[in-house]
Design a protein around this nucleic acid. Structure first.
Length: 311
DNA sequence: AAGATTGTTGCTTA
DNA sequence: TTAAGCAACAATCT
């Protein structure tokens, strides 16, 4: 890898995860799992449980035993979490966190990079199939599903139906569902003393928005990320609702393309995504007013905004 | 060589 | 009691 930050040209938030979900559903459903390779067993244990030696040591054996010979019959998404339904009474949770990727490789394509499908993104520059592969599923037709994850923040976890209900309850409203109505939003925003940035990042409020889309939503609304939620009026809350739906829908339409400031050794730009107005554009001109986009830290996260257009 | 990158959570503080 | 804030985790680059 030429540049560490190349890994971050794909930071999965709702639109990216949804794109993967839709594409994988067309490719892997009802295929019998022939074998599983666990290359790093930390991936099978969420970070907070990795000090549990028993979980860590039993993880791979149990994981294989439950999955081999079975097949996936459906893929759901809740926020940024993927839920693979097995043809048994169990479910496989997949969280990509920051650097996780799900890569489906058709039979016999291992050396033809141009044919490798990256979570639904055709990525001719993809080179890291092996180095950061943590878990590999092999299906009966010899196609493979790679879970790659440079930083090993992501995880794969098997749970039952009861545990699934609990997991789902932990999430707030799905932003693209009818449940995200103006009435519901007003109640949700009411009396919150935190910043709009922290509010939008909190998955218990709205599920699936990450750091990039938070900044983009705030810009689209002309609202500073530092604004306290309880200072927003009805009109502003409705605007946040409208722009959240609009931006996420557009991003899904663009197959979840998010952020890419990569330049290769020849100085060529990667894909620049025109709808990013503020994220990663600090020091550049605001496309609306020509002023300079600033970057500060809000809620512990890098936060981009236009001081003129947002207040 | 410390600081920064982000999603989530569990602990601390208010 | 509840909400808000923050450290910690992971790998790697500047």
């Amino acid at each position: 890898m030429k540049n560490y930050w190349d890994c971050f040209n794909f930071m999965p938030e709702l639109p990216e995860v949804e794109t993967i979900r839709r594409d994988l559903a067309k490719k892997i459903l009802d295929k019998k799992i022939k074998d599983i390779f666990v290359l790093d067993k930390r991936t099978l244990t969420p970070v907070r449980h990795r000090s549990d030696i028993r979980q860590m040591s039993n993880g791979a054996r149990r994981f294989k035993k439950i999955l081999i010979g079975k097949s996936f019959v459906g893929i759901e998404r809740r926020g940024k979490l993927l839920i693979f339904k097995l043809n048994t009474n169990k479910f496989l949770l997949v969280h990509l966190k920051m650097t996780g990727q799900l890569i489906y490789e058709k039979k016999g394509n291992s050396k033809k990079q141009s044919e490798i499908i990256v979570g639904g993104h055709e990525d001719k520059n993809f080179k890291q199939v092996d180095k950061y592969a943590r878990v590999v599923f092999e299906f009966e037709d010899s196609s493979k599903l790679y879970f790659n994850d440079l930083r090993i923040f992501g995880y794969l976890k098997i749970i039952n139906e009861k545990e699934l209900e609990k997991v789902k309850e932990g999430f707030g409203v799905e932003p693209l569902s009818p449940a995200m109505s103006p009435a519901k939003s007003m109640a949700m925003f009411k009396n919150k003393k935190t910043t709009i940035k922290a509010f939008l990042l909190n998955q218990k409020n709205i599920a699936g928005i990450g750091n990039i889309y938070t900044d983009e939503i705030c810009f689209a609304c002309g609202i500073l990320p530092t604004r306290k939620v309880n200072t927003l009026n009805k009109k502003e809350i409705e605007l946040i609702l409208k722009n959240t739906k609009k931006i996420l829908k557009l991003a899904i339409e663009k197959r979840g393309t998010t952020f890419n400031n990569y330049r290769d050794s020849n100085g060529n730009k990667g894909n620049f995504v025109s709808f990013l107005k503020v994220y990663g554009r600090q020091g550049q001109k605001c496309q609306k007013c020509g002023g300079e986009i600033k970057k500060i830290k809000v809620a512990g996260r890098g936060t981009h905004y236009c001081p003129v257009c947002q207040s």
